[in-house]
């Protein structure tokens, strides 16, 4: 492992090398984004560049998950090649459930204007009842699916929000910390795909198609 990183690390001193490797390990293995404060390799732009170069060598990239927060994700070109054959490791049912959570927790609040920014991690928690009502899966399968998604870090459980005058809700779900790992392009594509799927006749969808058309033409030419 060290050998392929050697070009990046060769000229560095003991401490810098140490800091970079620690930061690399942190962003790769920490489930949540790593705050700059805990890793000198992320705090310093020069060292961060080295971390990014190391990640680049293995097809990953450094993703900014907020002010002073960093994590890693697949490079856009690598992700494109990995998914070029349409392969998806998630079972169909899990994808359906995850889509429900994304729509309810992020897409709808963002459309309503109650959620700004392009993060896919925050939003309105989706209560389990909502999922049960909307899904076509049997309950047992839904539960299993949520369990798998949770283990994969694709959804997380949040304590139900107690509003005065409402019945306390059961478990509710939000997209999981793995969504931090989406690059900006990936986040944007996710949003656009949801728009195209949910409202193909909206002006937004039209704008997306218009924007994509020249890109596709350029690619073909």
């Amino acid at each position: 492992m060290t050998s392929i990183f050697e070009p990046v690390l060769a000229d560095l001193g003991e401490r810098q090398r140490d800091e970079i490797l620690a930061a690399f390990a942190a962003v790769e293995h920490s489930p949540e984004p790593v705050p700059e404060a805990v890793a000198a390799g992320l705090r310093d732009a020069t060292l961060r560049r080295s971390v990014a170069e190391m990640l680049h060598l293995i097809g990953r990239t450094l993703v900014r998950a907020g002010p002073g927060q960093w994590t890693s994700g697949y490079r856009d070109d690598v992700a494109e090649r990995l998914t070029a054959d349409g392969g998806n490791p998630l079972p169909l049912a899990d994808r359906a459930v995850l889509t429900l959570v994304l729509i309810h927790s992020v897409a709808i609040p963002r459309t309503e204007g109650t959620l700004s920014g392009d993060s896919w991690v925050d939003g309105t928690p989706t209560p389990i009842e909502e999922l049960q009502r909307r899904t076509q899966l049997p309950r047992g399968e839904l539960r299993q699916s949520l369990g798998r998604l949770r283990a994969a870090g694709l959804v997380r459980v949040v304590p139900a929000r107690l509003r005065p005058g409402t019945v306390p809700q059961n478990t509710a779900y939000l997209p999981g910390p793995q969504f931090h790992r989406l690059t900006e392009t990936a986040r944007r594509r996710l949003q656009e795909e949801l728009i195209l799927a949910a409202g193909p006749d909206t002006p937004l969808a039209a704008a997306i198609r218009r924007r994509r058309a020249p890109a596709a033409e350029k690619e073909t030419s």
Partner: peptide
């Protein structure tokens, strides 16, 4: 001593 790689613990 830095050789002990303090940042990595």
């Amino acid at each position: 001593d830095e050789q002990w790689r303090w940042s990595s613990g």
